[in-house]
Design a protein around this nucleic acid. Structure first.
Lengths: 289, 289
DNA sequence: CAGGACTATAACCCACGGCTATAGACAACT
DNA sequence: AGTTGTCTATAGCCGTGGGTTATAGTCCTG
């Protein structure tokens, strides 16, 4: 095993393309190729497979990627420490945009102000978050997940219900709570159809025998509540989002409550800082309806 | 930076002797020598200095040793993980013999029985324990310390006073507590003169104007209490030791109470398991008089 | 002061790792 | 189907890095 193999593998894993990765590393493509092969031989695993013209990392390949990131990162960190630079490597936090805005803002603020810890934020979808964690591109993640890979440690840090956001003059605006069936025939504002929340709401409506009339698909909870405030329809949003002034928000029952989990790569991949931040997030968990 | 340099440096750091280390690594002495030199050049630090014929690691050298141990250990661990062996590397616990026997026995028992974590025990003096931690030879340590290096995290896990162990027919055996001055003229059983406890007791006696008549220097608290039970003198021991039947134990006042600390190498050097064990020890702390 | 133990440098030599060239695989487009 | 472009993988060549032995230099011991 050699450290330069690991470094090379990180570059390769990012592009899954020997030619480009080699260019980035300023070596020839064959040179990179044999490095990767030797790494795989040395570890006794196949790191990637061909799928037509595309190369895909195997499961072991992902693990090696994460390991390689961890190792090279530690070397850098150690170098800085020896050089007397107190700067610790930042902890990379990956989460959805809304999660960052409404769930993480406060705990991250206190975290940064408290110690002089540096963090780096990434706004990514839940799938990308899990991916980044597995590959070691991120250290801590937050996402609403049902199933978590075994190599990721997870703890709930917040549970949220669903809200219907409506203009004050809407017929349903006076209600204290709504059921899915109540939305029958309403014009709805939902997230784009490829997002999980969209499918969940549509499925619940169908099951309740209600007609789904999706008039707007908007990316981002704020955009949805904005359209609702313009009177274009009822926005069915996660209760994590703050309700803007000028609209009513009524809890919607009958949909699964969504639990956000703090995520941390298991094993030694997690630095002490990463683990500490993870614990901090867990400690400052909160629940809303 | 290369992993084989790190491996070589660990071997060198253990012996501080190029010739022997080279033999152990199955390379020639010059080959090892240039490896170490390149490692130092690469990091931009001097790793060791000559002191006459002896070589001594610099402060940076110690850090590099710890780092090297951590890195090579992680590679091994990762290899095992890839090979599907669930066996995690054992956490190495270094502490004094008595600490192991009387302070750590119970928390370590519950630790091992609870999860299926493996640990490896080392009985070493307090100085060796600190040393091993700094060099990465041990992961968790327990020792009674006044000052702790900055790069070691420490938390108190137990405070103990001092006991006088005496035969039942001794003039002082009826007393409920003793002061240092009461020991004036008594025959004393103490640890060897190079151990801290010896110096502490003698100094306290002198300060109190009492005459110290040390008849026996014995290594190990049990041996001391044994000699006391034979009527050879008053054993002045740490309250950590259990009192054997057939003797009286009277608290001795006026000596500093001794606080045992759990120790953990700071930074990434500590594996998750090591940190967990550290926390476990802290959680199961106890105090005695 | 001789001798032993060990470090450090010099000189040599081989093999490992990088390079170019190119065959092989695969998709896309005419 | 044939052509072309893109990329992986192997072959063969070549230079450097790392290993070896030999030995000078240093320091303590008897």
């Amino acid at each position: 095993m050699r450290l330069d193999w690991l470094e090379s593998f990180v570059a390769f894993a990012e592009t899954r393309n020997f030619t480009h990765a080699a260019a980035r590393l300023h070596v020839s493509q064959p040179a990179l190729h044999v490095q990767i092969r030797k790494l795989g031989d040395d570890l006794g695993v196949t790191l990637y497979t061909r799928n037509g013209r595309a190369l895909e990392l195997t499961d072991e390949g992902r693990r090696v990627e994460a390991f390689a990131r961890s190792m090279t990162g530690q070397v850098d960190e150690f170098r800085r420490m020896l050089a007397g630079e107190a700067e610790r490597a930042p902890v990379i936090v990956s989460a959805g945009r809304a999660t960052h805005l409404y769930l993480l803002a406060e705990p991250l603020r206190s975290w940064v102000l408290d110690g002089s810890r540096r963090i780096q934020l990434r706004a990514e979808t839940r799938e990308e978050t899990v991916d980044a964690l597995l590959a070691g591109r991120a250290h801590v993640g937050v996402a609403p997940l049902d199933t978590v890979p075994l190599s990721i440690e997870s703890r709930p840090i917040g549970t949220f219900g669903t809200l219907c956001v409506l203009p004050p003059d809407h017929p349903l605006a006076k209600r204290r709570r709504l059921r899915v069936a109540d939305l029958d025939g309403c014009r709805l504002v939902l997230p784009p159809s490829d997002r999980p929340h969209h499918a969940t709401v549509v499925a619940a409506l169908r099951e309740a025998g209600a007609r789904a009339d999706v008039v707007i698909e908007a990316g981002g909870w704020e955009l949805m509540t904005h359209y609702a405030s313009l009177g274009l329809g009822v926005a069915v949003v996660n209760a994590i989002v703050p309700v803007p002034s000028g609209v009513r928000a009524v809890p919607l029952q009958g949909l699964p409550r969504i639990t956000y989990h703090a995520l941390l790569a298991r094993g030694r991949l997690a630095s002490t800082d990463a683990r500490a931040l993870f614990e901090h997030l867990v400690a400052s968990r909160r629940h809303r309806d």
